[in-house]
């Protein structure tokens, strides 16, 4: 069996289709593990992992922490709003201080694009990118693709639309890379102001009409409207956004098929998606969360495997 081709998981762009398939195969086994009466394996009992969150996160941090604990790793947590970062320490200093405590793997979320790549060049640890600014969020894309595969059987040839704030979304970019490597057709849909200018150069279609987009797709991945990343007004009002791009039952009932609804969370109920859709059988939002733990266990396991015991 070939191992994982990279020493880090910094983004989907630089890993191969074979890597993604290896992660999925490994995640299948971990999904079985986390449904046992005792949901834990001892593989990583001599590995220490630091979760460095320089930006707020609830589910990603919990999901990583649970994945690490289910693998029996020792875990230390760090969040920027209660640390020396506020006192002026640089990123490399912060991380090197943590690494002198003999840490093997760093899981990092950071508001700056490329923070993971930067770190991987300057410190001696395996880096997992848990989201870097508006750039990539590889584990989210992998769990999204895994959930689609689980629901539909395969990804090749499926039509997938990503709806909402594409401009500020690291989930969108990582999803595009992952799903394209697995052979899906991708369109993005949202207000023209929130569609990046050169998105077509990635081989992605643009559709500004949500009803046409839904009619075309097998899966709609609905993104959150990220008010916190918007420095200016990108659309006139939340109410108008909801009317033009919100996913509701009426829109889904008008289709002649059942499409799969996804959302990376946290949901703004009543804004990008209505409650009756989010809680319907078509939605696999909670499956995504469960699969997130299995996927993250697989990634951590595959990277840890490369750290040879001296």
């Amino acid at each position: 069996m070939a191992g994982f081709s990279s020493q880090h998981l910094l983004g989907i762009k630089h890993i191969t289709k074979q890597d993604i398939e290896l992660i999925f195969d490994t995640a299948n086994h971990f999904k079985e593990v986390i449904n046992r009466p005792i949901k834990k394996v001892p593989s990583l009992r001599d590995i220490t992992i630091a979760n460095l969150f320089f930006e707020n996160s609830t589910r990603t941090r919990l999901s990583f922490e649970l994945a690490e604990k289910r693998l029996s790793a020792d875990v230390i947590n760090f969040s920027a709003n209660q640390s020396s970062v506020k006192k002026g320490e640089t990123l490399i200093d912060t991380v090197n201080n943590i690494l002198s405590m003999k840490v093997d793997i760093v899981v990092m979320r950071h508001p700056d694009v490329g923070a993971g790549v930067f770190l991987s060049k300057h410190v001696n640890a395996r880096i997992i990118n848990a989201g870097d600014g508006t750039h990539e969020h590889p584990t989210q894309a992998l769990l999204d693709a895994y959930s689609i595969k689980e629901k539909l059987g395969s990804i090749k040839g499926k039509n997938i639309v990503i709806v909402g704030d594409i401009l500020h979304s690291r989930v969108a970019l990582s999803n595009i890379f992952a799903l394209q490597k697995l052979g899906a057709n991708i369109k993005v849909c949202g207000p023209a102001t929130l569609i990046p200018k050169h998105i077509k150069s990635l081989g992605v279609g643009v559709e500004l009409n949500i009803d046409k987009a839904l009619q075309w797709c097998d899966v709609a991945n609905v993104l959150r409207v990220q008010h916190e990343r918007m420095d200016i007004k990108y659309f006139p009002s939340v109410r108008e956004y909801t009317q033009l791009f919100g996913i509701n039952k009426a829109r889904l009932n008008a289709l002649n098929k059942d499409i799969v609804i996804m959302h990376p969370g946290p949901i703004n109920r009543g804004v990008e998606i209505t409650s009756d859709v989010a809680d319907s059988k078509q939605a696999i939002i909670l499956n995504q969360v469960e699969n997130g733990v299995a996927i993250r266990m697989a990634i951590i396991y595959l990277l840890a495997e490369q750290i040879k015991n001296a």
């Binding site: 069996m1 593989s43 040879k308």
Partner: peptide
């Protein structure tokens, strides 16, 4: 685990 050259497949 981590003591072999070849990765193990589950």
């Amino acid at each position: 685990f981590r003591r072999r050259e070849e990765p193990l497949a589950a």
